[in-house]
Amino acid sequence: MPPPRPDVRNIVPPWITVYTKPLPVPPRGVQKLQTNRPTFLNLLKIRQPLPAVVSILHRISGVLLFFPGIPLLLYGLEMTLRSPEDYARFQSLAGSLPFRLVALLLLWCFLHHLCAGTRFLALDLHLGGALPQARLTSRVVLAAGITLTLLISSWILQ
């Protein structure tokens, strides 16, 4: 009696699929090129490191400074320089809550944009370009933007 033939499936590693029968071939006419290809790009499922967060905030703050920042700046400049009456009107306007909220937001936009931009300039000069430093400086920039906003706004209000 011949010895039993070893099953080839027991001697190859488990992750290699051994086909003991020929591969099933789809009949002609059924074979087609794959056209349906999804792309995984769910931004909620992709973790963004802190330097990337600082960068996107740099971008968002830049957009807000462009609009409504620039027109508001010019409008305020015009109003405060036109006449003493307009200057007084601006001062009373500056006391209102909506004005203060908008001003606070734009102040943060400006300060974050300034701090993050300084960090980018340093990176261009190859300062702090290694990953640990870049992580540290992005933390510092984020904190500095918020701290300076609070300090300056409380200094103006006092």
């Binding site: 971008r59 830049g62 957009v63 400074l65 462009f66 620039i70």
Partner: peptide, 13 residues
């Protein structure tokens, strides 16, 4: 300078 800077930034976006 601000307007020039803004142009490059917004165009990048």
């Amino acid at each position: 300078g601000l307007f020039w800077h803004a142009w490059i930034g917004i165009r990048n976006i």
